[in-house]
């Protein structure tokens, strides 16, 4: 659930989706499922305006929609695979929901279309690279109404769209309220401390080349920057995200200019397995931020729906609480 949504264009995407996600109820507003059976409304996403059931009963999720939909209380009947590492980060009941669904393939481009059609879904929710959608679009839409988002979609707009299309807006509303509350709490508690501090967020993934790391400017750090107001480096307008560039360990020494370093840890607070080689280097240990206790491990289970983001905010809150006042 680490969609690499780019900062560049994310605000535009948010505005676009917020404005374009038009729901036109064609029937009554009654809460009874029976009343809504057969009724449709139109939803606008990256593949246009689609007529979908108001109360979908047989939902299939493909790609990055699976865990966010389950996080919002959805119960898909068919899913594509999720990595073991992602699955290990979600609550047990959500894992049970995932495992109860029919597995349709490892990824979007490997979906078993025959098996998918056999499930007779009334709605398909999909998020994966745009380049992979074009060859699948007609086949998916011939099976059921398909709502598709590309990977560049800003996460809040994506959550809104997913909740409305999949009819899980109640849970989303609660999550959004909790999110606002936590963000406000962090701003009020640490606002004065973080105002004058320069942060840098590092990351390293299982796919990273040995001896390299990245200054990550996408993922959970976008929430710290955009919603909380922390100052992290970001790519210049129109440039690729900083996180796309692998930097050799040799350049760790250049991080001395930052007051605070944030880096990825697991739920127990240990550096993530891919990042562990970084904290073992002598250069890391010699960094001023590290030696002065200003290297903060932050847990980011995902940034594509509110559930994992709330966990991230809890972790960030706890990490900032350890931050000594700037001398």
């Amino acid at each position: 659930m680490t969609t690499t949504s780019r900062r560049s264009g994310s605000a535009t995407a948010a505005m676009f989706l917020s404005a374009a996600l038009v729901l036109t109820a064609c029937g009554s507003d009654g809460g009874d499922a029976d009343d809504k059976a057969g009724e449709t409304h139109s939803v606008t996403a990256d593949n246009g305006t689609i007529e979908v059931p108001v109360d979908p009963q047989r939902v299939v999720t493909i790609g990055n929609t699976t865990l966010p939909f389950i996080d919002m209380g959805g119960e898909p009947m068919g899913v594509t695979d999720v990595s073991a590492s992602e699955l290990g980060l979600i609550p047990e009941e959500q894992k049970a929901t995932f495992e109860a669904a029919t597995n349709l393939g490892a990824s979007a481009d490997q979906v078993d279309m025959e098996q998918l059609a056999g499930l007779e879904p009334d709605l398909i929710l999909a998020q994966f690279p745009e380049s992979e959608f074009e060859p699948l679009e007609k086949r998916l839409e011939s099976i059921a109404p398909t709502v598709f988002w590309g990977l560049g979609t800003e996460w809040k707009a994506f959550a809104d769209g997913l909740a409305r299309a999949g009819d899980v807006t109640d849970e989303l509303g609660e999550q959004k309220a909790e999110f606002e509350s936590k963000v406000t709490g962090i701003q009020e508690t640490y606002g004065e401390i973080i105002d004058d501090i320069s942060f840098v967020n590092l990351d390293r993934w299982a796919s990273s080349d040995p001896g390299t790391y990245s200054i990550a400017d996408f993922g959970c750090v976008e929430i710290a920057q955009d919603d909380i107001g922390m100052d992290f480096p970001e790519a210049a307008e129109g440039q690729d995200p900083l996180g796309w560039t692998s930097l050799p360990f040799e350049q760790l020494a250049e991080l001395s200019e930052y007051d605070v370093i944030t880096y990825p840890v697991d739920a127990e607070g240990r550096p993530t397995e891919p990042f562990a080689p970084v904290v073992e280097t002598n250069t890391w240990k010699a960094l001023p931020a590290v030696s002065s206790g200003r290297a903060l491990g932050v847990f980011c289970p995902g940034n594509n729906s509110y559930g994992p983001v709330l966990q991230y905010l809890d972790s960030l809150d706890a990490a900032l609480a350890t931050l000594p006042a700037k001398e």
Binding site: S207, D209, P210, G211
Partner: peptide, 18 residues
């Protein structure tokens, strides 16, 4: 996919991080 990621990096041939 994990094996693919590991091999993508290893197949390039590098002397970094050894």
């Amino acid at each position: 996919p994990d094996a693919f990621d590991a091999l993508r990096s290893w197949n390039a041939g590098s002397v970094v991080g050894r």
